[in-house]
């Protein structure tokens, strides 16, 4: 600490060309917390401005997707859903998966879609992806509504699903899926500021990650041991599984799996933030 002050003297701000690897100023992000909240407010308020159905689009999109899955994977391909009503199975998977991917895509376009404002004023760039993460949590909350409606419908019909105490893990699940998505997005954004090639790769990767997770089939239905291992390696598998167990009471939460997912999230988050902060300082020259 002492050395740092000696370096700066009585100046409040020193701008120099090169910075150390771990030059992440989280304290500064905290100073800009008002901006973060205002960004969240802006995102939520402006999305459905001047549409008639408004937030209804939030509901329709997952329900329609779940219905498609129901037709294709359940009725045509006959893939089992581990004793959970098919619509509920798909809808729960889609809801949390959507949350993950919106966090990822939101963060991955940080530099390219904010170039105009980043080129004019300085504020800690990390504020933007973090605010996107927060607005996605709120959007996730809104998207839970169709799931809850569907849930009530099935409970009334007496299909034997019931929530368990493991639903209390939800904050951890949201942390994992959210930070994993955001940090992967940060890595992509850092890689794509100069060379856009990577943005084409990422859509394919996200797509295949979904098929390599338990969004459309339960882990128990996979017989091939190699594929089984691959799906287990996807941290989102454990997040989706724990979410389903908490919601419907079928199966058991794999705490080892969750621990693994949390570990991966923390590591990726560090890598993502480091890569992001290295890029943020001069990205405006190359974007």
């Amino acid at each position: 600490m002492k050395k740092k002050y000696k370096d700066i003297g009585d100046w409040d701000l020193v701008i120099k060309p090169k910075t150390r690897l771990l030059d992440i100023n989280l304290l500064e992000v905290w100073k800009y917390r008002d901006l973060l909240l205002l960004f969240v407010q802006r995102d939520i308020v402006t999305v459905y401005q001047q549409t008639i159905l408004g937030p209804l689009w939030f509901f329709l999109q997952p329900i329609l997707t779940a219905f498609t899955y129901f037709v294709v994977f359940s009725k045509i391909a006959n893939i089992p859903t581990a004793g959970i009503p098919q619509m509920l199975f798909y809808l729960s998977g889609i809801t949390i998966w959507n949350y993950f991917t919106t966090c990822l895509s939101g963060a991955s376009s940080t530099f390219t879609s904010n170039a105009a404002i980043f080129g004019k004023v300085y504020f800690p760039r990390l504020v933007t992806p973090l605010s996107a993460l927060l607005s996605n949590i709120i959007k996730f909350g809104i998207q839970l509504l169709p799931l809850i409606i569907m849930y009530v419908f099935f409970v009334v019909r007496g299909s034997g699903v019931r929530p368990t105490f493991e639903l209390l893990l939800l904050p951890l699940l949201l942390f994992n899926a959210g930070f994993l998505g955001m940090s992967l997005g940060l890595i992509v954004s850092a890689l794509t500021t100069k060379y856009r090639d990577f943005s084409f790769v990422i859509t394919v990767v996200v797509q295949s990650l979904m098929y390599l997770s338990t969004v459309i089939y339960p882990l128990s239905s996979v017989d091939n041991p190699i594929m089984h291992r691959c799906i287990e390696l996807n941290p989102m598998t454990w997040v989706i599984d724990a979410f389903r167990t908490g919601c419907f009471g079928e199966g058991n939460v794999s705490y080892m799996g969750l621990l693994y997912a949390t570990g991966v999230t923390v590591v990726i988050t560090f890598v993502g933030i480091i890569m992001f902060s290295k890029t943020e300082k001069t990205f405006i020259d190359t974007v």
Partner: peptide, 28 residues
Amino acid sequence: LLTRVTLPTTGSIKAKGRIASLLEVGTG
């Protein structure tokens, strides 16, 4: 460079106090 939108290639800037910029009004 003064407003930290980008970093210099060489050299340094030292400042006391907050720097605010009006590079283009209505940013954001």
